[in-house]
Design a protein around this nucleic acid. Structure first.
Lengths: 115, 115
DNA sequence: TTCTAATGACGCAAACATACGACATAGACT
DNA sequence: AGTCTATGTCGTATGTTTGCGTCATTAGAA
């Protein structure tokens, strides 16, 4: 493997670090947060009225949905012409555990503080 | 405010969504995760042997440290020529709470699942 | 069959992130 | 003063993300 100066070096890190970074990246845009919240709050797993709900074009929302789906945080289910989206319990749980473990690991103990 | 086609629309979202997205963005690179873990594991808040520890150039690590500092997750303290870095308890706690609240909010209840 | 509506895929332009070498600075040590 | 060392800043090349318009597809309606 040849590394050019500007090549990303993500894979030089540990698998756990890569995993949490990947899931954090998905959460790093307010639109995707908003989509997750919308799906959590909407009892009937309604499809792309998500586009109407967000201040973004339908195309852009579709893109964000793809990212969320790819990360395993949501699921899509065809229902005639429309598509029902909803949270993927398994993916959300996974994320919860990843973040939980990390946050526990990096909780500072008082005596280690510099100032 | 004029929006060109390609302008980011981050500020069209709610403040809470922006906050969590911003903190998630900081966590979205394995190098920064690794730095936080290193600081948590190193009792003596050691400075830039972080660069030696990571498979990145000193300049790049410095950049990541700046990002973490800017996000309030770490602190730097000058000590003669060297600089002691360590976790910022307050920032870590804040992140913990933000993620905790969100994860609780988007926890799917069984009956809402599509499939 | 033909029309319409919901959606994803493709491709572009602007903005942003990553990585690094080269330079600048500032403390410590002759 | 000069020199070395630890560090940050700047510029720059390349890669990635965001946002959207346009197109193709597919399911239902007429």
């Amino acid at each position: 493997m040849i590394f050019v100066k500007t090549m990303r070096k993500l894979d030089l890190f540990e698998k756990g670090q890569q995993e949490i970074a990947a899931i954090a990246k998905v959460m790093s845009h307010p639109a995707r947060i908003a989509i997750l919240q919308f799906l959590a709050a909407t009892p009937t797993c309604i499809s792309g009225d998500i586009s109407d709900f967000l201040p973004l074009s339908r195309t852009t929302v579709s893109q964000h949905l793809k990212d969320l789906k790819h990360a395993g945080l949501i699921k899509g289910e065809v229902e005639g012409l429309k598509i029902k989206y909803c949270l993927n319990k398994k993916g959300i749980e996974k994320m919860k555990q990843l973040f939980g473990d990390l946050l526990e690991e990096i909780t500072p103990e008082e005596e280690k503080n510099c100032s």
